[in-house]
Nucleic acid binder design. Sequence first.
DNA 1: GGACAACCTGACCGGCCGGTCAACTTCGCT
DNA 2: AGCGAAGTTGACCGGCCGGTCAGGTTGTCC
Lengths: 200, 200
Amino acid sequence: MTSPHRPLRADATRNRAALLAAAEAEFTERGLDASMADIARRAGVAKGTVFRHFASKEELIAAIVAGHFRALSEYARALDDASDPGGALVEFLAEAAGGQAHHDLSFLQTLTEGDSSVAAARDQLHADVERLVARARDAGAVRGDVTGTDVWVLICAPVHATGYVRDPAPDLWRRYLAIIVDGLRPAGAQPLPVPPPTWP
Amino acid sequence: MTSPHRPLRADATRNRAALLAAAEAEFTERGLDASMADIARRAGVAKGTVFRHFASKEELIAAIVAGHFRALSEYARALDDASDPGGALVEFLAEAAGGQAHHDLSFLQTLTEGDSSVAAARDQLHADVERLVARARDAGAVRGDVTGTDVWVLICAPVHATGYVRDPAPDLWRRYLAIIVDGLRPAGAQPLPVPPPTWP
DNA sequence: GGACAACCTGACCGGCCGGTCAACTTCGCT
DNA sequence: AGCGAAGTTGACCGGCCGGTCAGGTTGTCC
């Protein structure tokens, strides 16, 4: 978590939040090449302030990614006591995709493999997904040969698919989520040709 | 096509081919940030030569992308007289994914939307996919509510999915292709919640 | 209200990258 | 063989980007 080594000053907390929001917006608009200077400008602070809060661009990205992982993790856990495990899994996937449809930051994920706080948040989220999938599988809503990691790697697929059409409808990702979910169901499933990947 | 305005000199043809190969390799390894200087070095030529053959980095990328589109297009057309339309579609998707698994250049695609020769090759390939899907649908191998464009946008999904696991088996994409293909089949299909996108 | 630490600022730096160009080399043709 | 055109070279340029830091500012606590 964010180590409360010393409580931040009031303006520092404000600036940090503004920076994270600005960075998120800038990264979604300009991609990985969004510059620290632009992020600072958008947050209404000087360039130096960015580097006071985040020692490097990588660290800023890591903070964003870890934040998203943690938020999704919380959402997943809230679904733990759902009465319909199959529906819960789909609802989780929809939440994940819905967030990406608004701010697709999946391309930042690979850049932060080294960061330990990201790794922790990621592993936690993966465990949450694994649990959702296990319940859905036990309930017969998901085919038996599909693992949590399989679902994990497919999370971004619906939104990425929409990236290949011009001016996609804002909820087009639901169409591809539906297709993939149908592929995860037991009905009409053909045997899978390759063993599942191990985690990590 | 490549306009034969004047026949290229022998060394020029060699260099052009070397440059395309080097660029492809460099882009797969370093991503979009691969530098023109590195590409030149890898091809064994000077930097200026790159810009003689391709006026800008964008143009080089466009040449690569268009080349891949055309190669896939040819493959798709060779499948036109297959006796099993469902199998033909899957075979095409496997060829596309197999190529990407070796050299994933899908991230270059969005950068070349403006280029007219890329647009032509892309539209041609899309038409080919549409035809493969139509036949598979008529044969009952693909659900009725799925369009060619749906399949088009899902082409990259199997390979992209493998990008989220460490050291994926080289043919892991086959697993996710199988899942998606199962989602495209009529068996157990649930109605899709959103209308398909129009092309383009 | 004063004093100190935390924080912010913005000019500055080195490095890299896409792109240019005048001088030189090589191909291809007769 | 020799000549002109096509091709190649590599030093060079302007611009941008991540990152630094000395000095000014502001929150906070007594």
